[in-house]
């Protein structure tokens, strides 16, 4: 069975010099689609990617990452909406490059689709009541 998941990888400073992603491809036959990356030698690194492959290989790849010291979070947890602060104004809708926000036609409430979110963070600062929160 094939799986495809969007994940956030946090690299501790001591391993940012290692070819971690290369090994995911070479050793485990996984494919990746890089959504965001910020990796500099000697500093904590961040990578957001969609990782795909056979379930068995995917699990092995994740195990390899964990053993290497990479901390993994699933992407949907990374930008979240504080429902108590969202006023459903819509200032986020046309800002989002991946169209993760949409209007529910009848109520005109703003819907947020986590699956479309690539954690670029544009909405976090553009949200007037600061209802979008990024967890890195």
């Amino acid at each position: 069975m094939d799986v495809s998941r969007r994940i956030v990888l946090h690299f501790p400073p001591n391993i940012t010099g290692q070819p971690v992603v290369y090994r995911l491809v070479k050793d485990f036959g996984l494919t990746f689609n890089l959504l965001k990356a910020s990796v500099s030698p000697g500093e904590e690194g961040l990578m957001v990617m969609e990782l795909s492959g056979k379930q068995e290989n995917y699990d092995k790849g994740i195990q390899y990452l964990t053993e290497t010291g990479v901390e993994i979070q699933s992407l949907s947890q990374d930008v979240v909406r504080d429902e108590s602060r969202c006023t459903h104004c819509g200032a986020c809708i046309a800002i989002c490059p991946t169209l993760a926000f949409s209007l529910e036609p009848k109520t005109r409430n703003v819907l947020f689709d986590h699956n479309k979110c690539v954690v670029c963070g544009l909405c976090v600062k553009a949200c007037p009541p600061r209802a979008m929160i990024s967890h890195f």
Binding site: T87, H88, C92, A94, R108
Partner: peptide, 25 residues
């Protein structure tokens, strides 16, 4: 504006609101 897209100078431009219609309701 509420349709989500308007035409300006022949270009389709996506719209967003700062005023909340659900809250106004």
């Amino acid at each position: 504006l509420k349709s989500g897209c308007i035409k300006v100078r022949g270009k389709d431009v996506p719209t967003g609101s700062l005023s909340s219609y659900p809250k106004a309701m």
